[in-house]
């Protein structure tokens, strides 16, 4: 059973990563509008590349 001394800390590490990602998503306002994002998958992205990504993030 001594394997839990290794596995549990690894599990905690993953939890922390998950939390960090969630915090990042909140800070990026990804939870502001849940309806729109659900829709975005339906629309094909055509030739025009997503311009937002090339711009420096707004401070």
């Amino acid at each position: 059973m001594s394997v839990i001394y290794v596995l549990i800390p690894i599990a905690i590490l993953f939890v922390l990563i998950g939390l960090a990602v969630f915090f990042w998503a909140v800070r990026n306002k990804q939870f502001d509008d849940l309806d729109k994002e659900g829709f975005s998958i339906l629309f094909d992205e055509k030739a025009v590349a997503n311009k937002d990504k090339q711009d420096p993030p707004a401070p």
């Binding site: 502001d32 309806d35 311009k51 711009d55």
Partner: peptide, 14 residues
């Protein structure tokens, strides 16, 4: 986004 002058646009549907 089709307008060249627009850098960032974000619409909130709610």
């Amino acid at each position: 986004r089709q307008l060249p002058a627009v850098h960032q646009v974000n619409v909130n549907s709610t």
